[in-house]
Design a protein around this nucleic acid. Structure first.
Lengths: 163, 163
DNA sequence: TTGCTAATGTTATAATGTTGCAAATTCCGC
DNA sequence: GCGGAATTTGCAACATTATAACATTAGCAA
């Protein structure tokens, strides 16, 4: 399930989206959850690119669709999609991005390019285990982990020679 | 510089705050930065406890002080304090907490208790290095790292037997 | 003093997220 | 198909968090 193409590498993004939607249908079926038209449309919008989208950005596109939606519509759809691991919220951006590991249990970590805005989600077992060891040393019981790294992706780093 | 007492352990919090303020004065002097009364007061408020405070919480206390402040006053003070590493913003809470490693270069990681709200900042070199290795594998250049772990601190975990 | 810069005050507004309740839709056993 | 329960959506209002723009004041040095 799901593509692993890097967002900043050329890839067939149509296929990327199609795969994400197909995965979503499968996952929802497995959980007896209803991927209603609104929810599916929101997921599709989130997947339009690998740049995280704010809730109000989604809302604006729904409005263009002719869908006269209010904020709760979008937030509810996003809550649903998060619940089934289909999208992630990026706390440092107040925005949402499609999960590229949907269906697999994973401890995501996000590389966010300051220049192009693309986000790469990756699973880093070494980071995760080091983190859990550190928490254990403090007798802390982790329930939810947020790891967001802001910086420059390879393409932007070479283009602009930041830093 | 600065105390390392765990927030959920009993400790002399008066001393904790006093130390933080003293450290702040030193650091600002070293950088020729002005720790004005407003900035110092905001720092003191942030340090009232180890529970992160929202900007509007700070604002409310300033109002009680008789200081008729508006949001920009608080946000500007917080920006200043962040700039000199005296406070951290917790993205997942939209709130601010005193830095317990002020002055030292550090890659903070935050353990946030869902039950009592206390936050423990710790420096975890193993996490940091694993994270940088993972980023390097993607040829990503990190500039800023956010690690926030939500869960239960030892005291609350034993009190309430969550999970 | 004069003039410069940093800091603060003030007003308004933008951006993000939530509550509560009513209406519609869907599911499911009969 | 039918009826009742549960889920989903519509909708209006509101709450919270953050910033923009511009005027004013304080600190400081020539």
């Amino acid at each position: 399930m799901s593509s692993s193409a890097l967002p900043y590498r050329p890839h067939n993004h149509q296929a990327c989206v199609a795969q994400a939607l197909a995965d979503a249908r499968t996952i929802c079926q497995q959980h007896n959850a209803r991927l209603t038209p609104t929810r599916e449309r929101v997921l599709e919008l989130i997947w339009q690119s690998h740049k995280p989208l704010g809730a109000y950005d989604v809302l604006a596109v729904l409005a263009e669709d002719g869908h006269n939606a209010a904020p709760p519509t979008v937030y509810r759809a996003l809550d649903f999609l998060q619940q089934y691991g289909l999208v992630h919220r990026i706390a440092s951006l107040n925005a949402f991005t499609g999960c590229t590991h949907a269906g697999k249990s994973h401890n995501g970590m996000f590389l966010i390019c300051r220049s192009c805005g693309n986000v790469l989600e990756l699973t880093a077992p070494a980071v995760s285990s080091a983190l859990h060891r550190a928490a254990a040393e403090e007798s802390f019981r982790p329930e939810d982990v947020t790891i967001e790294v802001s910086g420059y992706c390879p393409r932007c780093a070479s283009d602009d020679a930041h830093g």
